[in-house]
Simulated scan of single mutants.
Amino acid sequence: MLSPVMAGVDGSAESLAAAEWAAREAVRRDRPLLLVHAWNWHPRRTDGEPSPKLPVSLEQKSAPVAAQRHLARSVLRQAEERIRAVTPGVCLTDEQVEGPAAVALLKAAEQAELLALGSRGLSGFTGLLVGSVALGVAAKATRPVVLVRKGEEAEDEHVPAGDGSPSTRTGYRDVVLGIDLADACDEVIEFAFEAARLRQARLRVVHAWQPPSAIGLGPGDIALVNEPQRAGEWQQFLSAMLTVWREKYPETDVLETVVEGKASTALVRAASAASLLVVGRRLPERPAIPRVGPVTHAAIHHVGCPLAVVPHL
Rank of each mutant, 00 (worst) to 15 (best):
S3H: 14
G121T: 03
H312C: 11
S15M: 02
L92V: 09
C185V: 06
T126Q: 12
L128C: 01
K53G: 05
L224F: 15
A184V: 13
A231C: 14
R173I: 09
V137Q: 10
R246A: 12
G220F: 07
A85Q: 12
Q60F: 09
K53D: 12
E256V: 02
L217Q: 10
R28S: 13
V9H: 08
R197L: 13
Q78C: 05
P228F: 05
V206M: 02
V133S: 04
E81M: 10
V268D: 10
G89T: 14
V206C: 03
V36R: 01
L203G: 06
A17Q: 09
P228V: 04
A85E: 12
E81V: 08
F191A: 11
V130M: 12
V295G: 03
R24E: 15
L92W: 04
W234G: 07
R269P: 01
D221T: 11
K150Y: 00
E190A: 15
A270K: 01
R29M: 08
D10K: 04
P50C: 08
F191Y: 15
R77D: 13
V133L: 07
W209E: 10
L34F: 00
V303G: 06
T46V: 13
G261M: 05
V254Q: 00
I222F: 15
H297E: 14
R120F: 03
Q210S: 15
Q111M: 11
G164N: 03
L276R: 02
S272H: 13
C185G: 10
G121W: 03
V56W: 06
S272K: 13
P290I: 10
L34H: 09
E227S: 14
K150I: 02
P144F: 08
L277N: 04
D183C: 05
T265R: 12
R44I: 10
S119M: 03
S275C: 15
A299P: 03
R199F: 03
P166R: 01
T170A: 12
I189E: 13
A161D: 14
F191N: 08
A7N: 12
A17W: 10
K248S: 11
G121C: 02
A66R: 13
R286F: 14
L117T: 09
K248G: 04
K53L: 13
G162P: 00
A104W: 02
V90R: 06
R82W: 02
R29V: 01
L34S: 10
A38P: 09
A38M: 02
V310N: 07
P311L: 07
A154E: 14
A273I: 03
A184D: 06
L16F: 07
K61N: 09
G124A: 04
E155N: 04
L76C: 01
I289G: 00
L203C: 08
I222S: 11
V295E: 09
R202P: 05
A134F: 06
G218V: 10
P287A: 10
H312V: 05
W39V: 09
A38R: 01
I300Q: 05
C305Q: 06
G121H: 02
L71Q: 11
I289R: 13
L105Y: 02
G164D: 05
A116D: 07
Y172W: 10
L217N: 02
